[in-house]
Write a protein that binds this DNA or RNA. Sequence first.
DNA 1: GTGGTCTAGACCACA
DNA 2: GTGGTCTAGACCACG
Lengths: 145, 145, 145, 145
Amino acid sequence: MEFRIDRSSGLPAYLQLVRQVREALRLGWLEPGDRLPTVRDVVAGSGVNANTVLKAYRELELSGLVEARQGSGTFVKAGLGSTDPEVMNALRSRLAVWVREAREAGLDAEDIDALVRSVLAVDGDRAAAGGAGGQTNEGEGVAVR
Amino acid sequence: MEFRIDRSSGLPAYLQLVRQVREALRLGWLEPGDRLPTVRDVVAGSGVNANTVLKAYRELELSGLVEARQGSGTFVKAGLGSTDPEVMNALRSRLAVWVREAREAGLDAEDIDALVRSVLAVDGDRAAAGGAGGQTNEGEGVAVR
Amino acid sequence: MEFRIDRSSGLPAYLQLVRQVREALRLGWLEPGDRLPTVRDVVAGSGVNANTVLKAYRELELSGLVEARQGSGTFVKAGLGSTDPEVMNALRSRLAVWVREAREAGLDAEDIDALVRSVLAVDGDRAAAGGAGGQTNEGEGVAVR
Amino acid sequence: MEFRIDRSSGLPAYLQLVRQVREALRLGWLEPGDRLPTVRDVVAGSGVNANTVLKAYRELELSGLVEARQGSGTFVKAGLGSTDPEVMNALRSRLAVWVREAREAGLDAEDIDALVRSVLAVDGDRAAAGGAGGQTNEGEGVAVR
DNA sequence: GTGGTCTAGACCACA
DNA sequence: GTGGTCTAGACCACG
C-alpha cells in the first residue's frame, strides 16, 4: 500500500493518511492481519514527517482498526468493507462507465465530485439514520432553496 | 443558498464555505449576477464566526468568482458550470440510480465516497492534464500493489 | 483543576493527564459543560510541553469525553461519574478511615496500592463482565499459586 | 508466581514485571529465598520477549531485591513487607468488605482506583516524608480548587 | 529496526 | 488568545 498526500487540499496530512487507510479497508484492499507500511516506509514514500504518520496510526489504533505491535509493525485488526467483493466490482465498473460519460460531457474531477456530493446529500436525507460512519463527509453539503 | 459546515471533518471552516460556493457554481445552482447570502445570514445559519465568512468571501473574490459591492452584498461574477444543464441533469439522474443501487447493496456514504475516489484516481491517471486544478482532490488517492 | 505529573512513574505524561481528567470525571469533580484548563495553563502549571497537553486533550476528544472549541477552550462533553455524590462521599470517608488505620499499621502508599490492587484483582475475577472500562488497570495484576 | 502484562496500559512491560514482583514482596507472597520464575517461564506465560524479562530482573537485582545465581535461577534476597501477616490480613479483609460495598454502589474498578488515589493523595500531604519512594504513584494526583 | 514519547518552535484557523 | 498542525530531532521500549 502506498500513500499519496496532497499538500494543497487543506486537509491535514495525518487525516489524509487515516482516510486512505479507511478507504483501503472499505474497498477490501486491506484486510485483518495485513501489515501497514512501516512508519519509515511511509516517510520515505510520501515525504511527510514520521510523527505525522505516527499520529495517523495512533488515531487508527484508537478507533480500533489497527494494532501496533512494538518491534514488528502495525497490523489491521478489524475490517470495514463488509460488502461482497463481486458486488463491489460490479458497482465499480458501472460507476466507471458513468464517470467516462461524465468526462466526455466535459466534466472534470471537481465537477464530478460536486455532483456526487450533491446526490449523496439528497440521498442522505432519505437514508438518514444510517450513519455513525465516523469522519464521513455527511453533514457538509450544499442546500439551495 | 444555505451553508452547512461540519466541524469534525478536519477541513477548515472557511474552506468548506469556499468549496460549497464552488460546488453550487459548478452545478449551476448559482449563476453570474446572483447574490450570495450576507455574512450576517451565514453566521446566523451556520454558527461560524463572521471573520470566517469574510475570509471565505475574500478568497472567492481573489479567485475572481464573486465580487463584493459595498453596501449591497456579494455577487457572483463568473460561472464555473460550463456544462449544458440538460446534460448535467441526465448525468445526475443516472448517478442517482447508481447511488440507490449502491445503497441497496449495503454501502454507506463513506463506502460510496471511497469507491468514487478510487475510480476517479484510476481515471485521473488517464485523463491527466485535464482538470482545471484548484482545490480538487486530485493527487490524493490510494494505490495498492 | 490542576494537574500533577510524576516524571518518574514510567507512565507517559500525556496518559497521566488523560487519567487525571478521567478521574476527575469519575469523582464528579468535573461535569459536562465545565471547561478544562487551557493548554497554556497546563503548560505553565505542570511544566509539560504544549504538544503533550494537546495530545492528551485530543485523546480525550476522540474518546468522546471532551470537546474542543477553537478559540474558546476545551469543554467536558460527557460525564463518567454516574454515582450519587452522597454515596460517593460516604464510601470515601469510610475508605479514609481504613487508609488511616493502614498507615498506622506501618503501610506506606506503595503497600496500600499493592493491597488494593490485589483485592481488586480477586474481586475482578468475580465481577468479570463488568469492564469495557477503557484504560483501566484490569488485566494487570499478580497471581500466585 | 505468574505475571500478567497489560499491553494497553501505557506502562512499559518491564516495569509491569518489576512492579508485580515488588507487590508480591510487599504482600508477603514472596519471601527471601524464594525463586522467581525462570525467564523462559515468564516468556511462555506472558508473551513478552526474553530481553524484556531480563531487563526487569536486572533492574530488581540492581535495587537489591533479588539475586541471580548462574545456572540455578533468580532468588529473592530481601523482603519489602515488614508488616505482620496477621495485621495485613485483617486490613485486607476489611478492605475487601469496603470494595464489595463500593461495587454494590455501582463503582467499577476504575472508579475505585480513582477514589483510592484521591484519598491517598490527600492523605499523602499529611504523611509527607513517609514513603520509601521508589516507583510509587506519589506525586501524581488531581487537585481541584 | 520496529513503534512510541517528548520537546521546541513555527505557523495556521478561529473567536 | 484559543486550539490545531507540522517539523526536526533526541531518546526510549521492544523484538
